[in-house]
Amino acid sequence: MNVERRWHVVRFLLTSFFLYLVWLVFTASLEPYSLIFGAIGSVGIGALTHTVFIAEHQANLRYIVPNPLHLVLYLFIIIAFLYQSSVMMLRAVFTGEVSPRIVHFRTRLRSDVARMILANSITITPGTITLDLNDDHLTVHWLFCDTNHAKAAGERVKGRMERFIGNIWP
C-alpha cells in the first residue's frame, strides 16, 4: 500500500466518521434501522466526497484534526466577539462615524481550515470583513480604521484571533 493510497483511506475514514457523528446528533435515536442506514449513507457519501472534504495537499493530520478543548473555548470567544461587534456596529449605524479603508496583511497559519476559520472570524469581529483570501494573503475592509501602518493594522485586526486559532490547528 503506497503513501497516496493510504492517505486516501485515512481521508475517507475521517469523512465518514464526521458524517456519521452529524447523523447521530441530528437523528438522536439508537434504533438499529436508523443506525444502519446512517452508516450506509455516511460511507457512501464519504467515498464520493472525501477528496473535496479534505484537500489532498493538507497531508498532515494536525492540519485537519482540531484540539477539541481550544475549539470549544474559541466558540465562546467568537460569540462574545459577535455581540461586541454588533454593539459597535449599532452605534456606527446611528451616529455615522466611520472611516472605511481596505487593509492587506499576511497570516502565519499554515492549514487551509485554520485560514478559512480566521477569515470567517475576521468577518465576525468588530468592523472588519474579509474580501479576499489568497493562500496566506488577506484583503480586509475595515470600517473603523485608525492606522496607515500595514503591520499594526494586521495586529489590530487578527492578532488575538490568530493566536487562538494557532492553538486549535498548530
Partner: peptide, 12 residues
C-alpha cells in the same frame, strides 16, 4: 462594503 457590514453582521 459598508452595507454588508450592517446587513451581514447585524443580520447574523
Amino acid at each position: 462594503y459598508a452595507r454588508m457590514h450592517a446587513g451581514g453582521l447585524l443580520g447574523t
